[in-house]
Amino acid sequence: MIQRIVLVLFFAYLLLPITGVLHFTLLDGTRVTAAHYLQALGDGEFQAYIVHSLALAVATVAISVSLMTFTAFWVHMRAPALKPLLELLSFLPFVVPAVTLALGLIEIYSRPPLVLTGTASLLTFAYVVLALPFTYRAVENGLSAIDSRTLSEAAQSLGAGWWRRFITVIVPNLWPGIVSAALLTFSLVMGEFTLALFLVGSAYETYPLYLNEVWRSDPKYGAALAILSFLITWGSSVLILGASRRAPGQVQGAVLK
């Protein structure tokens, strides 16, 4: 009973702020309206920026998932001694403040030999770094759960080469974890503000940056756009849940520790 009350209060707290946004955007005086939401349909800027964010999210997911799956499997099979190092490097971005990461990146990539500030590629690379802890956890949990060594050796005894083992045996077995990590990374990038502000700003404006601008000029519309953020977040949760159902125990894969 007490446990149920605790959980209800917990969820009430997590849902409370959303009620504020809904109340604020759906009511004009006492009249219910969807006008602030429909405004987005005719807003070319919004459409352009959400495409920017989607492009960044897809690129980040593609790079981070392939890089981490490959590297984690490689270390698992060929250099298990390096696992603690990989673990440490993949944990670091979780505690490095975004603003200090931005600081270092700006200083290095705003002068030759490699000028990248203001480009979508620098932001994508920074996001891959940001996603490392999640992707690594998901892949690593999967690798230790499936006894990848035995699987891989079995495939090898049947004559499968390294790449073939990786693509046709290991990746399908890690798939639920990979999907969870991908969705989490996706939702991370769709909401990321700090690195976008400092690394590219208006040169490649993203959805969260636009949200912040609109909020200051047209609060009702800004709040309506914020609801979209919540929907992306929740949509991702539901999909992660769906992915993890297929492999019981894998839901922890999306969890940090």
Binding site: P17, G20, L188, G191, F193, P208, W215, A226, S237, V255
Partner: peptide, 22 residues
């Protein structure tokens, strides 16, 4: 747990709005 995973990453601009409107 999934819900917590996602909400723990839910911060920033929209969260600030949400609290201001509440």
């Amino acid at each position: 747990i999934t819900f917590c995973t996602v909400t723990s990453n839910f911060a920033g601009v929209p969260l600030a709005f949400a609290f201001v409107t509440t």
